[in-house]
Design a protein around this nucleic acid. Structure first.
Lengths: 131, 131
DNA sequence: AAAAAATATTTGTATATACAAATAAAAATA
DNA sequence: TATTTTTATTTGTATATACAAATATTTTTT
């Protein structure tokens, strides 16, 4: 189980990295950016929930996107809002293309049905492991 | 799919790390060590196949176990053999205990049947992704 | 036999992520 | 209102792993 889940994650990472090469973003950065475009002003805590990553990782991802001028951060009190830049919005169609490319890539290998089932099983498992 | 597989791997990593705390080894180190004990003189290239990791990672894992005096390496020509030390052999029962603890931990959460099915599905998937 | 190609391993460096501690602000309690 | 607790985010540092290049050796080809 240990090695299977790790191996699967690494394979998926590779496939995803390949898919997002065109926009020069890692899959995590790309997903985060899409969430920010979809919901401008979204807070890091919300990103944590969507992406199943830890707060520190989210901070690091945002920092990198900020350097690339794809998002901006405004902090008021203890809360932070993350907004997409025009540059990011312009990139959206390409991001969707990459997402689609990735989906096609793995569902071509697994079949759409099996893919869907697998994802939902994994999610169930993750939920159960999240106490 | 991308986040689900990654999240699952991270949860499993945590569960496994917990299980191997007693012997003060990371799961990867522990599995590698068990393989070496099981097949003294095993070569890095064989470990690569068993553990689904890259050669460089295997080298790094062995290096660490060597520092802990749990394995020794002998190199002749381009081939390297890895052997367990007596210290490692003495550790074997504890390693098995940890392995069992880990198995109990996740199959308690998922059920033995679902666990087995999940693992075999993941392996199938990994195989298909390994071109 | 000399040169080229293939194979096994190691080394330098980079990426993704996490944990724990630090910071800072808001909310709850006394 | 002052104090404590909780919540949100960031920072310092560590781990697991990979890729690409380097090294060394064996095998194949010429």
């Amino acid at each position: 189980m240990y090695f299977s889940s790790n191996a699967l994650a690494r394979k998926m990472e590779r496939l995803a990295t390949e898919s997002w090469k065109k926009v020069d973003l890692s899959p995590s950065h790309a997903y985060l950016l899409m969430l920010v475009i979809d919901e401008p002003g979204i807070q890091p805590s919300a990103l944590v929930e969507h992406l199943l990553l830890t707060p520190s990782t989210i901070t690091r991802l945002i920092e990198k996107l900020e350097k690339k001028k794809l998002v901006v951060r405004t902090t008021e009190g203890k809360l932070t809002n993350v907004y997409p830049t025009p540059k990011a919005k312009k990139l959206l169609p390409e991001l969707h293309e990459c997402l689609n490319h990735f989906y096609q890539a793995y569902s071509a290998i697994l079949g759409k049905e099996e893919s869907t089932r697998m994802v939902s099983n994994m999610n169930k498992l993750v939920d159960k492991l999240t106490d």
